[in-house]
């Protein structure tokens, strides 16, 4: 029996997937802009950050409305709760992509270190891949794929450590790179935060499928 609720939930589900794709796209563009020193593209990301914030508010309002009007239980409730919680994680991930864009603008015109930027490019691509995997795991409602997200997170922590160490080394050797190197640190930190939020999304997907609230980082 198809219920009115199923249509409402499908709308909410589509809205969440769209927002996920938006965040995936903005992460990709923020990484590219940083690597390519593309100030214009970075500015566009900053200017459009509110799009993601507005989507979060819309999806939250829709979730509250569904809870009030349909009083969902069991799997239905978990689907709504998953979106309600994970939508904040997506929004925060979007904020960190915006921070990368801000760093792109801040670094422009300063002395840079090609070697570290290559490492950031690698970390950025891996982060983008993780965001895409998280959204795909949500679309497929795939708890195993959600669990696998934590391996991205582990790799990204390694990347961040390498970038941070290299940045400090470069500052010691050549104080002219201070501005750029500080921002390399910031960007690596932002990428790692995005990974954290995607891990959270993974945890909510597991909740959706199993009803269990888990900490993925402590699961393995």
């Amino acid at each position: 029996m198809r219920r009115q609720f199923d249509d409402e939930l499908a709308d909410l589900d589509n809205g969440f997937t769209e927002m996920g794709m938006l965040v995936s796209d903005v992460t990709q563009r923020a990484v590219d802009a940083f690597i390519n020193h593309d100030r214009q593209s970075a500015q566009a990301i900053i200017d459009h950050d509110h799009d993601i914030n507005e989507r979060e508010i819309q999806l939250e309002a829709k979730s509250f409305e569904i809870i009030a009007l349909y009083q969902p239980v069991t799997m239905d409730l978990r689907e709504v709760v998953t979106i309600l919680k994970a939508v904040s994680d997506l929004e925060r991930a979007g904020d960190h992509a915006r921070n990368i864009a801000i760093a792109t603008i801040a670094v422009k015109g300063n002395t840079r270190v090609a070697e570290i930027e290559a490492q950031i490019a690698e970390m950025g691509h891996l982060t983008t891949k993780m965001v895409q995997s998280a959204i795909q795991a949500y679309v497929d409602k795939d708890a195993e794929a959600a669990k696998a997200l934590v391996t991205f997170d582990n790799q990204l922590q390694e990347h961040q450590k390498v970038i941070t160490d290299a940045s400090y080394q470069q500052i010691i050797q050549n104080p002219d790179v201070l501005k750029a190197a500080t921002n390399y640190n910031i960007v690596a930190g932002d990428l790692l935060r995005i990974a954290d939020y995607m891990t959270n999304v993974g945890e909510w997907i597991i909740y959706l499928k199993t009803g269990k609230i888990v900490e993925l980082k402590f699961l393995n």
Binding site: T74, D76, L77, R78
Partner: peptide
């Protein structure tokens, strides 16, 4: 009401 074991229960509870 949160995580029934049987699909029939789930289907009935969620209407």
């Amino acid at each position: 009401f949160m995580n029934p074991a049987k699909k029939e229960t789930e289907d009935y509870i969620s209407g």
